[in-house]
Design a protein around this nucleic acid. Structure first.
Lengths: 191, 191
DNA sequence: GGGTCAACCAAGCAAGCGCTAGTGTAAATG
DNA sequence: CATTTACACTAGCGCTTGCTTGGTTGACCC
């Protein structure tokens, strides 16, 4: 057992692990399966990660960090209107789900498999992401673009968006932009 | 190894299994843990269920069947207006999540652990439930109470509702009725 | 009062699990 | 040239897993 830096090699291994975790689930994915997918033997795996748990944490950290970066970038390069910002966030969320699908599915489904320390560390990242959403929703409420309880609206919207991993087909006819449009139209109270 | 009827004993065992599956996840729940929770030895478990998979299927079937019954009852004893029916469905959904929480959390999180035959059988049940939703949403669209794509609206709404298992606290100050109200208000386009 | 049957138990098997120990080797570093 | 580093290998330990086997118990039935 050795390092725990973020070498490029480790990044690639993390990506491949995410793929398997989605296919099989974390518990059903054995270190031998992971090693085979990575083209090495199971013993060699522990040169890159302290243990199996750390692979899961790495997958989720990678995905969440990307989501944060993308969402921030989307907010920076869009209008200041509440509607534009709402739409930018929704679209960014869906695009992350598309480009970084595996990591996010893992984050949604296997969160409970994290040990307490990892969960604690990663929930800070997740909170930072959700704070972006809440700021945008607050602004929309202030402009009276949407109505209702701040807390509830945020959770309803995130639920609707996160649920898309269950049914959204990136190869289908609908683009993330379309979906974001429809969602904003649904909750918006103007013509 | 023996029967696979639906004796009252089996119902009770199923209920206890659901509890453990929620706490630990399906894969991490061992037959020895299940047996201990049930007050029997692990070998005796296989008198009631063919294998571990069948316990999972039993849990999910029970929960989905209950949801169907409750939703149908709610629709029968409410106004014919689209808004009332929308609210009745949302409220029924949330109440099921409250009274039958364990089974539904399992259905949401462990669906992928079902083997293909069980998944096929249970997806028919789930489709019947979703059909109720789509009928109600169709009516609301026809009345122009809500706008948008039938398919997308249905999935956004179900996502928002199912996501509640992540954050909703039944002991908190909000009732299922409150939540249903807020959700309908959010997507509704009238004063 | 012999037969039936659901319900349970003790014991254990074969397979698979996460992880470790110790070693080899090619490239980078001093 | 000598040493360190990064990465991979083989071999296997200690343990848990889902499930099976072979048998016992006690309530009910004609």
């Amino acid at each position: 057992m050795n390092v725990m830096n973020d070498s490029p090699r480790r990044k690639e291994l993390t990506r491949q692990a995410a793929q398997l975790f989605v296919q099989e689930g974390f518990d059903r994915t054995t270190v031998r399966m992971l090693a085979q997918e990575m083209g090495i033997k199971s013993g060699s795996l522990f040169h890159h990660f302290r243990d199996k748990q750390e692979i899961l944490a790495a997958v989720i950290e990678e995905g969440t960090q990307n989501a944060l970066v993308i969402a921030k970038a989307a907010l920076e390069q869009c209008d200041n209107s509440a509607e534009a910002r709402l739409q930018a966030m929704a679209r960014a969320h869906l695009e992350t789900l598309l480009t970084d699908r595996n990591a996010h599915v893992v984050a949604l489904y296997e969160w409970r498999r994290l040990d307490p320390e990892a969960r604690d560390h990663l929930s800070h990242l997740r909170d930072a992401y959700e704070a972006l959403w809440e700021a945008v929703i607050d602004a929309a409420l202030a402009e009276r673009l949407i109505h209702g309880d701040r807390f509830l609206v945020a959770r309803f919207v995130m639920g609707a968006l996160n649920w898309t991993v269950r049914w959204y087909d990136p190869a289908g006819s609908r683009s993330p932009d379309d979906l974001a449009h429809e969602l904003v139209a649904m909750i918006t109270h103007r013509a």
